[in-house]
Amino acid sequence: MSFLLTCPNCGTREVTDFGFGGEISARPTARPSLRELGEYNYFRRNVAGVQREWWFHRSGCRAWFIAERDTVTNEVLLTELPRGPGSPESVA
């Protein structure tokens, strides 16, 4: 067991209840060059600090949600359901 996350549907659980989807990154909207595609597929900001990231409640409701977590302390500042296309975290 380590830190806790609060699934917006199910409540607070141990991190082992969840799957990690990585930092939120924007999927290119127009056809990217090979280099831009590589950047999107492989490069990560990997910030030391607050990161918006995807989590999946694998052991519970099996829904994806978004967390803001400080990667230096693992403190989870907020969790929320994605708001869909057009929202800041949308990768579409």
């Binding site: 199910c10 659980r13 052991s59 099996r62």
Partner: peptide
């Protein structure tokens, strides 16, 4: 309570 039961997804 949906959550892990014996390391498996459960409710």
């Amino acid at each position: 309570r949906p959550g892990s039961i014996a390391r498996q997804p459960g409710m």
